[in-house]
Nucleic acid binder design. Structure first.
Lengths: 148, 148
DNA sequence: AGAAAACGTAGTATTTTACTATGAATTTGG
DNA sequence: CCAAATTCATAGTAAAATACTACGTTTTCT
């Protein structure tokens, strides 16, 4: 029960993009380097993000990616739903030989549906901008502190 | 990003057990039949539940399983944590070559940690008894209604 | 022209999942 | 006391998912 690398890498890469795009677009090579992610793999992740209109691309030399909308309008929910293929914990079939099974339905309504709801409620209200701001805040505090 | 059959079958089986244990213990065969789950597979799931002291067993003919505690004291969180091996969405390593990475940390604190918190908060306050009660309620309403 | 990038697709090793199979140990009813 | 019913334990395994790698094409800037 874990989020896959697609979701994890994708979110990190988008925050990196949001934070490092000063007006213009950013190449995947640079994101891959900063985030220590395989370029080939990132390309696949960004192909998905592009098709979903979360990022837009400029081809050719000095090309790269940029956010398709302001960071404040890109919900984390959208990103994860796309990269994880429906970000929902479980979608149980409640039928049992053409008849509803009360045990299954009870578990579904009181557990799976509720989890999905809680998670989505939160992720619908968290945007890439929130993450970018948190990054900036951390970046101001961290540098001198945490070394191993 | 789905809960595995262990978690799904396990929860259903426990609700079935709670609902069908009239004082005494219940055989896995009967649970497997009602819930349409492979007996062999259920045995493995219940081995885990037994080691975690969620159910207790009586061996031999006419033996079976019963809840180790009142249903109202068995939290869904405990069940899922055990069956899914830490029911947490992601536990990202925030270090990057001995140094904290602000992007990873931002994503972790604002996304993964928050999701884990929301989900756990809810599941810590939902018990098998809640599920059993929901089952009874549904069972009173459903029978005549939903047929396909 | 050549380099730097996005874009596309296929292959692949590893891991996880969801079982099945088999047999031993234990208890009870007949 | 024996046979059936049950839990208990472990090993194997087919299929799917994961996390990539590899390789080539296209586009655009300098």
């Amino acid at each position: 029960m874990k989020v896959s690398t697609k979701g994890r890498y994708g979110l990190r890469a988008l925050v990196d993009l949001a934070v490092n795009s000063t007006g213009t677009h950013v190449s995947l090579v640079s994101i891959a380097q900063r985030q220590k992610i395989s370029l080939n793999y990132l390309e696949q992740v960004f192909a998905t993000l592009r098709k979903a209109k979360i990022v837009k691309s400029v081809k050719g030399a000095q090309g790269g990616y940029s956010l398709a909308k302001p960071a404040s309008q890109i919900k984390v929910a959208d990103v994860l739903n796309i990269l994880e293929g429906e970000f929902c914990i479980v979608d149980e079939d409640v039928f049992d030989e053409d008849q509803i099974d009360a045990v299954r339905l009870a578990v579904k309504t009181l557990v799976w549906d509720q989890i999905n709801k809680k998670v989505n409620e939160y992720l619908m209200n968290t945007t890439l901008d929130d993450l970018a701001k948190e990054y900036e805040r951390l970046n101001g505090e961290l540098p001198d502190l945490y070394y191993i």
